[in-house]
Design a protein around this nucleic acid. Structure first.
Lengths: 156, 156
DNA sequence: CCTCCAGAGTTGACGTGACAACTCTAGGGA
DNA sequence: TCCCTAGAGTTGTCACGTCAACTCTGGAGG
C-alpha cells in the first residue's frame, strides 16, 4: 500500500513536538499579554481589529468576518469586554445593537499592548528562527490555510 | 538598532498565516474526532495515554506528567470522563482516590479512534509536507520546546 | 396589505483550560 | 509523641470556544 494506515514513529515524534511547541509558545505569549497588559489574547485580537478600523467602529458581523470567528463567539467576547469596559456597543433608537467601538480604556490598552506583543513574538519566535525554517513554516502555513479553506468552501 | 521595536510586514504575514494554519488544522482534527468517534481531542489524549500504560492504570500525577497538563486540568477532565464512563477511578479502602484506568467502553473508543486519527494527521499534515519542510519544522519544534522548558525550569 | 424568510445579533448549555485555595495523608524531625 | 510540611488530589471560579436555538427586523413576493 502506498498509504500506510498509521504513522511511522518518527512521524509521531515530529507531530508531537510540533504540537507541543505550538502549545508552549502560544501559552507563553498569552501569559505575557495577561501579565504585562492585563488582557487576554482574545481581547487583544478584538481590540487590534477595532483599532485598525478606519472609524474605530464596526458591525459585529464585520468583526466576525475580519477575525475569522463565529458570530456567537464574537457576541460572547463582546459581552465580557463590555463588562470590563474595553468596548461599547452602540444602539439605534429602538435599542437594537448596531455597532461596536473602543472605549478610551480599550484604546489605551491596545496601544500599550501592541508594542510589547510584537516584541514578544520577535523574541520567542523570530529570533530563534533560521531563514530556511521560516521559509518552510511559511510555505506550509499557506498550503494548509488554502487547502482547508478550499475544503470548507466545497464541503459547504 | 539591531533589534527593531516592531515586526516587519512579512514577519506579520508569516506569523498570522502560521497562527491561522494551526487554528484551522487543529479544529479540523478535533471535529473529525468528534464526528467519527464521538470523543474530543482532550479525551483522546487521556485515553491514548492510559492505553499505552503497561497495566492500563496510572496515578493522576503520572497522567499529568505524561500529558504535560496541570493536575487540576487532569482532575476536571477525569470527572467529565468518569461521567461519560470512559474511565474509572479506583479507591483504596478508606475511599481515597488512588488511580485511574480505562473502562471497556473507553478501551473500545481509543482503539477505534486511533487509526482514524493517525490517518487524518497523515492526510492533513504529512501528505502536504515536503521532506525538507519536515526537517525544518522538526528542528524548530525541538528548539522551541527545549528553550521554553529551560526558561520555565530556571524561572521556577 | 400580509406573510414569510434570510440575515444580524443574542443567549444558553456545555466542554475546555488556567489559576488559586482547599483537604488529606504520609513521613521526618523537635 | 506531636507538629508540620510536602505532595497528591479535588474543588471553585473565571475566561474561552462551539453548537444550537432563539429574537428581531427589513425586505421580496403573494
Amino acid at each position: 500500500m502506498a498509504k500506510p494506515r498509521t504513522l511511522e514513529p518518527e512521524q509521531w515524534e515530529l507531530w508531537n513536538s510540533w504540537m507541543q511547541a505550538q502549545r508552549l509558545l502560544t501559552r507563553e505569549l498569552d501569559r505575557a499579554l495577561q501579565r504585562d497588559h492585563g488582557i487576554s489574547k482574545a481581547e487583544f485580537s478584538v481590540l487590534v481589529t477595532l483599532h485598525r478600523a478606519a472609524e474605530g467602529r464596526m458591525r459585529v458581523s464585520e468583526l466576525a468576518e475580519s477575525l475569522g470567528w463565529e458570530k456567537s463567539r464574537v457576541a460572547h467576547q463582546l459581552t465580557r469586554m463590555e463588562n470590563r469596559e474595553l468596548v461599547d456597543r452602540t444602539e439605534d433608537r429602538s435599542g437594537r445593537r448596531i455597532g461596536v467601538g473602543l472605549t478610551a480604556k480599550g484604546r489605551d490598552s491596545v496601544e500599550d499592548a501592541i508594542l510589547g506583543h510584537a516584541e514578544n513574538i520577535r523574541r520567542h519566535f523570530f529570533d530563534t528562527l533560521a531563514p530556511e525554517q521560516a521559509a518552510a513554516i511559511h510555505a506550509w502555513s499557506r498550503q494548509t490555510v488554502d487547502r482547508i479553506e478550499a475544503r470548507c468552501r466545497e464541503g459547504a
